[in-house]
Write a protein that binds this DNA or RNA. Structure first.
Lengths: 190, 190
DNA sequence: CCGGCCGGTTTGTGATCACACTCCGGTCCC
DNA sequence: GGGACCGGAGTGTGATCACAAACCGGCCGG
């Protein structure tokens, strides 16, 4: 999810097992679960690797993010108090730090933490789980994407999200979330 | 997914294994995968059962169905030719049959087949997989729901969907799909 | 020089087993 | 009579093993 593994990287059950000091059995369960969630792809011979997503699939996943996360943000809006906004601004500072340090993994991790903190207020665990499943599928690709576009400035749309939250502006919030989610992934198609 | 198991029904690894003439290992993988997808719930002691969904969770899942399936239908619309509409009408006949036979499982199965046939035209496998994950989570609940409302007539909104497809009416299609998806699940909250 | 073949090695699969924990029943004591 | 206790059956977990298939070298023939 955090882009620690590049797309197309192969994994073996015995390797994963050694990495976590367990036998093949728990490693197999974990890997199969991640395959079921779409986080890993399995060849027809059972070999497992991080997926290399096609542009069509990336577009689909971006559309899913837009659909689900806009709804989550919308549901979180009436429950968003000042404590949440403070927390979002703190996390946003971590995002900026990661950008200036050119730390892709930290950037992805804190960026997702920003979104999760907001969506937790929606009190919609099934929807949040769905969104996280999409994040999981996009993890390796987001890492590759970050390498392509050399970001210099912290995310612009996060500020718009916070502003819309403060103003209680639901249409503005929906647009800001949609833009933030869609923005980065559009670059990859070009 | 098809409501063959009632909510709250307990499963054991050895039982599932015997049912399919395999040992515990494949049974465990299958069960864990279904847990990962939310189709089964696992107690903190590892016991597995079909979930008994709260009304809040049902509302969330219905909202997810509405979000995703409306988008899928919208994407399928420009690709929908007469062959698809014929097929949908045929499947709709099976739905009606199941209703008159009071066969809950056949009703759920053919109803989902109707939706899947439409969404397959959207050429969006990731979105379809997401929708099917939601169906999976709702399977046992849909069975219980069918028992509560004694349907007599075949689904009204399916006809609206077909009519909107024929007319190329996108707003009408979106509304019809949203209504069809939301309709049944709203009853459960009351 | 290139492509097909062919061995050894790696890898996933499924079965089996020992173990710890949980659950559920009866039983005993207060 | 009711509730706590206790023991056995049931259950999930993780390790290990045998096996089949896939992969990846190098080698040989054209």
């Amino acid at each position: 999810m955090h882009g620690e593994i590049a797309p197309g990287h192969a994994l073996t059950l015995r390797g994963v097992g050694q990495q976590f000091d367990v036998s093949m059995t728990p490693a197999r369960e974990a890997v199969r679960r991640l395959v079921a969630e779409g986080a890993l792809s399995m060849s027809n011979s059972g070999r497992v690797a991080t997926p290399e997503l096609s542009n069509e699939r990336i577009e689909e996943l971006a559309a899913l993010r837009a659909l689900i996360e806009v709804e989550l943000a919308s549901r979180a809006l009436p429950r968003a108090h000042m404590a949440l906004i403070d927390r979002l601004q703190t996390i946003n500072g971590a995002v900026s730090d990661a950008v200036t340090r050119h730390d892709a993994v930290a950037y992805i991790r804190s960026n997702l933490e920003f979104h999760r903190a907001l969506y937790l207020r929606a009190q919609a665990p099934a929807m949040l789980a769905m969104a996280e499943t999409v994040w999981l599928q996009l993890g390796p690709t987001m890492r590759a994407l970050y390498g392509k576009l050399r970001r210099k400035e912290p995310p612009h749309y996060h500020r718009l999200i916070i502003a819309a939250l403060k103003a209680g502006d639901e249409p503005g919030l929906r647009l800001a979330v949609r833009s933030d989610v869609t923005q980065g992934l559009k670059m990859l198609a070009s």
